[in-house]
Design a protein around this nucleic acid. Sequence first.
DNA 1: TCCAATCCATGCAAATTCGTATACCACTCA
DNA 2: TGAGTGGTATACGAATTTGCATGGATTGGA
Lengths: 305, 305
Amino acid sequence: MDWRSINFDWNRARAFLVTAEEGSLSAAARALGLTQPTLGRQVDALEQELGVMLFERIGRGLRLTPAGHELMDAARQMGEAASRLSLSAVSQSEAMEGEVLIACSDVYGALIMPQIVAQLRAAEPRITIRLVVSNSASDLLRREADIALRNFRPEEPNLVARKLRDTCARLYARPDYLRSIGNPETQADLSRASFIAPDDPAMIARSLADFGFDLNEANFPIVTDNFLVMWEHVKQGLGIGFIDEQIGNAEPKVTEALPAMRPIAYPIWLVAHREIYQNRRLRFVYDFLAEALRHPLHSDENTSG
Amino acid sequence: MDWRSINFDWNRARAFLVTAEEGSLSAAARALGLTQPTLGRQVDALEQELGVMLFERIGRGLRLTPAGHELMDAARQMGEAASRLSLSAVSQSEAMEGEVLIACSDVYGALIMPQIVAQLRAAEPRITIRLVVSNSASDLLRREADIALRNFRPEEPNLVARKLRDTCARLYARPDYLRSIGNPETQADLSRASFIAPDDPAMIARSLADFGFDLNEANFPIVTDNFLVMWEHVKQGLGIGFIDEQIGNAEPKVTEALPAMRPIAYPIWLVAHREIYQNRRLRFVYDFLAEALRHPLHSDENTSG
DNA sequence: TCCAATCCATGCAAATTCGTATACCACTCA
DNA sequence: TGAGTGGTATACGAATTTGCATGGATTGGA
């Protein structure tokens, strides 16, 4: 495309428009929050730039030349479009209406978010929520989501992040499963137990080694990349699984496998695009989530899936 | 009027428009003759100013956010209006079509300009002429005229002036009138003659004293502020009058009253508004008049009124 | 898998623009 | 007529904006 015809200083067009409408440079300067010399120079420069004399300089005030009068039509339309642009922008950033994309894990999406979303929509019904469920970190910079729940400190610059709290994961299993393996009481007692593991068993095994376990691939007969799937297998009595204590404690079908064991602590971070600084709707959801997730839910509030 | 909604940096809107249309800051910079950092900062600033995120920064290039996409409509209309403004300005300054206001004295308007205007309109028929006839200097700065013929060096700054040549005024009268007062040959012989005087007889008397006359108010029985009226009275044989030799010599009814007398010399200046530098039509008329008036018209070209 | 091309972000010096202060002019009203 | 009001033009120092140079990152193809 050829942009030559718009390649002039648009601020000078604004100066021309307001000066013509207000009748003087001084009045235009007041209206725009600038000074009279500035407006005067901008109008002069526009005349030079366009090669047209816009105003006659008479003693007091200015008067449009015939040429200037001819150009007022286009200038007004430019101003109206500018006004639409800015008002539309304001309404966009101020509007509570619209969709917010929240990225979270499948477990959070299924077991924690529902009641938070319910509260949020009760508070602000015009906001609609799209849950982007993934167990890998969503790319906020590419707007795969507006706000993400993460369990690690985000490293990307240009993101807004807030650590909400620390939480714990514990080992859960069905009581009948625990009985079937002899009601273990120590890590050593679980050396031949079955764990329902997410994703990479080898890595899980290494991590659990820090907690006194001695496990190998034989301890991971069922693997899935979906925590919900894992959890359902635990609830079915097929083995032991790690899950957030908030969820595990609320599930009547299961019990803690090793109550004496030190839990695995990890953080809860709320991460968002910088746009939350500018968009009232995003800001609202961000703050709402931060407040709702700051403390664990009461057990009786949980969905037991 | 309330201008708040247009009081943002319009150049940033231009940066936004071209960047969105071109697909990248670099391409927009090339299209506008700016640099990529400049465009980038302008877009950033617009986002801050409007409170809306316009682009997602993805690896290569940018992509409009939904909010940015919403604003493109208004931005395009702004650009189209800007384009109309600029193109309209160009066509105005380059248009040969239109009116040109020429200020001149009544004598020039009636006796000199007609044939010059005829030539001018033959050369450029789309130009129309309005003759602003006045024996006092028109105010070009207030656009009482575009171009003025004057008989003195203009003093106003901001005007464009060119001295075309010097010309002379001489004393004329009808031969029968001269006979009736005894065929005068010297200034003293005219001490009881009748002069048809423009405007202020006392001032004329003082001026003529420099040329050896000794006149008083009794010598000015007919006074008018209109040189054409004066000239018609001279042609009617009612007295003696000063007029440009170009006109006097071309009028068969009259003859020079004192051929031996030194003529009154005065300059012919062409004065115009600065706008002639920008307006092709004004420039054409200015140059045409300068050329046409540089030398006296041939006698046989004159209208004899 | 590496290289070339292309793009955005940022630091810094230069150029431009802006605001303050002031001079000057035209009109109005006492 | 003379002071007051409200306007434009200009000088100059300060603030902002711009361009250049450079670094980092991604894409596409050899």
